[in-house]
Design a protein around this nucleic acid. Sequence first.
DNA 1: GGTTTAAACGGACCGCGGTCCGTTTGCATT
DNA 2: AATGCAAACGGACCGCGGTCCGTTTAAACC
Lengths: 190, 190
Amino acid sequence: MADEPPHERADAARNRDAILAAASRLVDEVGVEGLSMDCVAHAAGVGKGTLFRRFESREGLMAAVLNRSETEWQSAVLAGPPPLGPGAAAYDRLLAMGHSRLRLNVTHGALIKAATGSSGARSRAAAAFAIMHVRYLLGELGVDGDLPLLAIAILAPLDITMIEQQQADDVTLERIEAAWDDLVRRVVAG
Amino acid sequence: MADEPPHERADAARNRDAILAAASRLVDEVGVEGLSMDCVAHAAGVGKGTLFRRFESREGLMAAVLNRSETEWQSAVLAGPPPLGPGAAAYDRLLAMGHSRLRLNVTHGALIKAATGSSGARSRAAAAFAIMHVRYLLGELGVDGDLPLLAIAILAPLDITMIEQQQADDVTLERIEAAWDDLVRRVVAG
DNA sequence: GGTTTAAACGGACCGCGGTCCGTTTGCATT
DNA sequence: AATGCAAACGGACCGCGGTCCGTTTAAACC
């Protein structure tokens, strides 16, 4: 445990909360695109340097803002009511997970893209969770093969960039969902 | 036909070529990341306004630079030697296409990401070609279902962002390729 | 309470992508 | 050759993300 030696200073903690609150509010007010770091700094009553000290980059700040809903989703998957959470058959859980993830990617699309900049290291952890979960469900279903990569392949079409590509062609969410269900069926059937 | 009414002025054409040549050279020299629009403009001997007039944005310029190798690949798929080109069995062509696309995405990763900015409209056309081709091959193989969306699902794991995600976990290209082959087998098997 | 020190702070500063607008220039018409 | 004009040009300009460094301050120790 080691009880994390480096104490976090009180003002630092206060500022971090202020920044996150301001950022969340501004995202709701002016949208992800129309949000500048100067603006967040001013709204939080801190200097720009402080902002970058805590969150490293715009991408990092967006990831932090996104983090709350992301962990919410994770706990819904891990411990929420079925069929998303435990208690339902693995196949149903897998389908529920995909549908839920699809909706989440659509509603938080702008935020997710902003949090997945060039490096992308930021949101890798979030993706890893979904991959691990799918991998686990595939195992439960008795699927054999390279499960981690198969999990990635199943999740890839749900990515926001893929969804936007399809929406540009006026494909409805229902159709995307149905096609994804079909994909899962084929993969699981082996 | 209409013989395109708006004549392209001679200086405009000359400048466009100069810009593209300079941009291609600089991409090779300093890489995609280390390339600034001012730098390209100066190297091409034109003003920055001219550069943005022709290519609209950095993303657009990158797409134009990428375009040459992209069309090369497309003609290899449409009319090159088998198994990538016509003449081989549809299933072999599908596998060859995936492998080829995977390698291309890896080697041109930085350029592709730079050409696929926030709007993404730039490189939508390139993606559409691959989708159409996979859709056609799936049809030849007698696969039934929502072929356009199934084609997207097959191509999605080959996307550069997915590949980089896997490479961050030290997954080799050979393993990615094998897992993708397995995915294709499952999808085609129905 | 006073002293010390490492951490946090903040805003001036930089280079970049992108825009704007006054100026120049290719080309058609006479 | 002279004229007219739409199109192309180019560089000053703007806001943004990100960095740097001199200044301030929380908190541990005496």
